[in-house]
């Protein structure tokens, strides 16, 4: 009998602990929770949590909740109504959802550049390339000769979409080649694999700098960069199906990151840690970015 009393009290204590932690941990204390889908590469830099925290300081009672997936998946989930706003960087995909009437209130809030990275001995000679088409041709040729590997995200992310555009632009089709490896993983994993296998890949500058700084990708170097054709434009959208208080808060968040304050935060993010900015604010070059965006959106 004593044992069952002990057991009973143990069960009661357990239930109380569960209920208590349930109340404290699992309930969202904010009155308004706004969900956003976004891209892994953007989220992994930490910028979004940083902007989210700054926003919530000014708007108590609102919590911005980011769900990080690839750009393609982020847009698809938004279209299913599972997010109130999206932060993505794949213009050619974005335009499809705009045309479907899923997205509105388009704001470009940041940009940076994609970079071609690869092994420091550069067997394909990317460093000597004169333009992007030349870069892709050199990698393709070296691949065919068995001199080089290329790792592709293969996940319909913004970076993946960009990479496929580059091949298309050069008139090449690497799909199915032995040296062309599609891994279906995030940017970080892709960089690490490229470093391990001495391979080439396309990366956004933010993730590359972070991983380089932390010593995760010792074998990789930037081999080709600063080409306007490699511009990487980050856009925010409201999802049409989102309404009410959440919509209002989502709009306020987008307005915040495109405001002078928000743009300043973006410009300075990561400078102390990496010695250079991870993102450039969009406000300085908005008209240039908008026309580039339209151009990119037109390439499928």
């Amino acid at each position: 009998m004593e044992r069952s009393a002990l057991l009973a009290s143990a069960i009661i204590v357990l239930v109380v602990i569960v209920l208590a932690s349930y109340t404290f941990l699992l309930n969202n204390n904010s009155t308004i929770a706004v969900k956003a889908t976004t891209t892994t590469s953007l989220y992994a830099t930490g910028l979004l949590d940083y902007l989210g925290d700054k926003f919530e300081e000014k708007h108590p009672g609102v919590s911005i909740q980011f769900v990080a997936v690839g750009s393609g998946e982020a847009l698809r989930r938004a279209a299913s109504g599972d997010a109130c706003f999206v932060l993505v960087h794949a213009p050619s995909l974005e335009i499809q959802y705009i045309n479907q009437g899923v997205l509105e209130y388009h704001k470009i809030f940041a940009y940076n550049y994609f970079i071609i990275v690869g092994p420091s001995d550069d067997p394909a000679g990317v460093r000597q390339a004169t333009n992007l088409t030349d870069v892709m041709e050199r990698i393709y040729r070296a691949g065919e000769e068995g001199e080089a590997l290329f790792i592709s995200r293969g996940d319909n992310s913004g970076t993946n979409v960009k990479e496929l555009q580059l091949w298309k632009m050069a008139g090449l089709d690497p799909k199915g080649k032995q040296w062309y490896i599609e891994i279906g993983q995030g940017m970080g994993e892709t960089l690490v694999m490229a470093s391990e296998k001495n391979a080439y890949t396309l990366s956004d500058i933010g993730t590359y700098l972070k991983f380089k700084k932390d010593g995760r990708i010792p074998n990789l170097e930037i081999l080709y960069s600063n080409d306007t054709a490699l511009i990487n434009i980050y856009s925010a959208y409201l999802v049409k199906s989102c309404s009410g208080e959440e919509r209002k808060a989502a709009k306020e968040f987008i307005d915040f990151i495109t405001s002078d304050d928000g743009q300043m935060l973006i410009a300075n993010y990561g400078v102390d840690k990496y010695g250079q900015p991870l993102f450039y604010p969009a406000s300085d070059k908005l008209s240039m970015l908008e026309s580039t965006w339209s151009e990119l959106a037109g390439q499928g």
Partner: peptide, 9 residues
């Protein structure tokens, strides 16, 4: 998973 994706091993 996130820490791995961010390289924070």
């Amino acid at each position: 998973a996130l820490a791995t994706a961010m390289g924070e091993y």
